[in-house]
Design a protein around this nucleic acid. Sequence first.
DNA 1: CGAGGGGTTGATGGGTTTCAATGGACGTGG
DNA 2: CCACGTCCATTGAAACCCATCAACCCCTCG
Lengths: 240, 240
Amino acid sequence: MANRFVRKLSGFSKLTPVEIAALERETAHPRKFAARQDLIREGDRPGPVFVVLDGWAFRYKILPSGTRQITAFLMPGDACDLHIGMLAEMDHSIQTATQARVATIARADMDRLLNDHRGIAQAMYVSQLTDEGTLRAWITSMGRRTSIERVAHLICELYARAHGIGLVDDTEFSLPLSQIILADALGMTPVHINRVLKELRLAGAMTLSRGSVLILDPGKLVQIAGFDENYLHRRLREPS
Amino acid sequence: MANRFVRKLSGFSKLTPVEIAALERETAHPRKFAARQDLIREGDRPGPVFVVLDGWAFRYKILPSGTRQITAFLMPGDACDLHIGMLAEMDHSIQTATQARVATIARADMDRLLNDHRGIAQAMYVSQLTDEGTLRAWITSMGRRTSIERVAHLICELYARAHGIGLVDDTEFSLPLSQIILADALGMTPVHINRVLKELRLAGAMTLSRGSVLILDPGKLVQIAGFDENYLHRRLREPS
DNA sequence: CGAGGGGTTGATGGGTTTCAATGGACGTGG
DNA sequence: CCACGTCCATTGAAACCCATCAACCCCTCG
């Protein structure tokens, strides 16, 4: 059974058995990290590419005032930027949210993967465009959606992404993130997140408890969020 | 004299005369667009890569309610994503803000540029990482900065970017964007943008009038914004 | 000269933050 | 096995930032 990374990339491009084997070879020796550990910090000189195989992590920035803004969640299968090694320094930090298994791919190995395997390159580039689309969707949420719409939209996104890598059990999936982390991702206070979650529960749309989301009414949740999954680019382009 | 696109890429990687010539050849025949014209719309099938040589454009998304969120500004020298042609459909729209000259590079030509010229590939990848860093900076602004900090931060960013392509005249630069456009970029209302600009003017930090920004007190503006330009990646990585 | 787009200012209301307090869940050590 | 500390979830009350509504001005352009 392929690991989550292979599974995710397979969703973006048809991979040959040789390509799958190459990816699994490069991620065969992950390292274990405890929760709340920085993989890399803003200002650090970038090293190898990180690939999260199990557990959750997030990208974040700290402001002069000390407040934190989370800019992305990394779930199993997600990787940081391919060309990270070209930069002089990181412009953000990455931290584990839970215990996690993380593989690293050295710059030279990454270049070889991209050059030798057309399918891998294609999948990774689409994956990168999806990450950018997600950043744009987050900006749109923060700028123009109300707090309840924002929360609903994030849950829809995480559900769709978890579904893509086989992490969803019917209408339920594991979301081991505290309300404090959700607040820092959505630009809200933990207090208000709590009230909004209560509202979504009372509306019969969804519940979040003990680290797991239960979707009660998918249609209602999507409608509240105004969710359109096109930015996740799960549909492959057909040859013209 | 090299065009703005070449000038911008030169800031990210040392380009050989051959590479510069190749870039100029590919962008030698720009097309003129009037203001307020969509270059491409959400849902469209992507075509060639766009390169803005003169004038301003922006990426945006429209929500179900009809409100607009701008997710990025394209100033002279900026391009849309390199691998846009791999996607089945666009997840956002791009529109000119002013009259503009825009070149297009076909997918095959772009692949050739990237494969044949190491310097061009490097510059474009760093440029892409910069775009992503900018998206993260915007998320951070929208989530955790007050309205005056947000406005100041955006102006700092645009100043720095304009400076990089030689568009700044000492402490002044052209910013042909209406307060309505700024509002849709910053997740605020035009009314409130207006009040914040007044506040920045009264504080002696900057003024914006008749399409041009005048920085009165750079230190004060940077301090209000909490601006750190590291995410623009203007410092090249030194060999290890 | 009228129409339309953009900039400016005032008054009002509401969505979120802030401050504060309580209780539950969990792990650790006595 | 229970006491204790810590982290997190939850709820209430009050303050505030910003959106909303509305009016008026200026400028440009057909």
